[in-house]
Design a protein around this nucleic acid. Structure first.
Lengths: 190, 190
DNA sequence: ACGCTTTGTATGCAGCGTAAACATGCGACG
DNA sequence: CGTCGCATGTTTACGCTGCATACAAAGCGT
């Protein structure tokens, strides 16, 4: 019987996990375009073809990295949501979302702009949805509010990461906090 | 003397423009990752190295394609803004932004996620900024409202293009229209 | 007519993703 | 305990990419 995760490899000793870790490292170091399967294999001390025993191809490896990213994001959002109540909780989630993107730019891009489908983000999405639904006022339906809140922080994160907006470091977090809070208050009907 | 644009080439007859057009075609056909300089050259009937006489490298060709995209976006936004007044004009711009992204997904990604800097989008940005400043109410400062509006539509477009949200075709436009209008009314103080 | 600049070509290199054939060593079964 | 099977990793090879370099030809000023 083989445990699907943390499976001991015969020759290497858990290559699969090592590949995901090395891929994440390369990702954060040089961006998604600069990541090569061969380099990942090299970093793990195995041949260029070894990863194909664990992943059907480059894309599948990246999907595994993205999946670990969604787990981390969900944890972050959950903590932020618990740190406040009402509109402030929604704003905290938004700020946390942008902060996550700023701290792991390449991973964030992989998670949301890379290959993969909508089902991946389900848990993190549910956290936002619950909070947004509780706040929905007269201005917008609950579903629209959820999507609007997500779009707002996602767009802000994307614009910051791609340097379409001149915000760096601290200023980015502050702006995210301010805009998200203003939006949440507006949406909640003051 | 050489006119910087539409310059007649000695051998080919305006290769530069042909390369940009072919690159755009390949972009819309197969995405940015599937675009190769060699294939673009092939489509123009020239050797693989010919593009390097007009562009320093692949990136510079893509920047030229992106620049033409920003011009087209600015025209679209301007028309949308003129089609209504007040909050409705802002909503029209937002819907036009999302529609543009849906109609030219690869070009949109190249324009906003590709290489390049903030100065490119200046004209299209000014159109949004003017309208947003005119609407700024008590809830948010003018600069924040501009950024929030941009983030909202940019994020919505990104989520739709990357299929993180289950909206297709008509539904995407309708949702963009609805959400943007609700946001504009909220921001304008009803 | 000459030479210079511009434009396009030919050749070659290193790196990539990946398909196919091959080697190796653990675990199960006789 | 021996042997076989299969998962694991390696080797080799192919076509593709962006790009550097060296070369050929076409137009223009003098």
């Amino acid at each position: 019987m083989s445990t699907s995760e943390a499976e001991k490899s015969y020759h290497h000793g858990d290559l699969r996990a090592a590949l995901v870790a090395a891929a994440l490292e390369q990702l954060e170091a040089g961006g998604a375009a600069a990541l090569s399967l061969r380099a990942v294999a090299r970093a793990c001390g195995v041949s260029a073809m070894a990863p194909y025993r664990h992943f059907a191809g480059k894309e599948e490896l990246l999907e595994a990295v993205a999946a670990s990213g969604f787990e981390a994001l969900a944890v972050t959002l959950e903590a932020a949501d618990a740190s406040a109540e009402g509109a402030e909780a929604l704003a905290a989630q938004g700020a946390a979302y942008v902060t996550f993107a700023c701290r792991h730019p390449a991973l964030f891009r992989l998670m949301f702009m890379g290959p993969g489908c909508a089902s991946d983000r389900s848990r993190a999405y549910a956290i936002l949805e619950r909070r947004a639904a509780a706040l929905a006022g007269s201005g917008m339906a609950a579903a629209d509010l959820t999507l609007a809140a997500w779009s707002l922080v996602h767009g802000l994160a994307a614009l910051i990461l791609d340097r379409r907006v001149p915000l760096e470091g601290e200023a980015a977090q502050d702006t995210a906090q301010r805009i998200t809070l203003a939006f949440a208050r507006l949406a909640a009907g003051d």
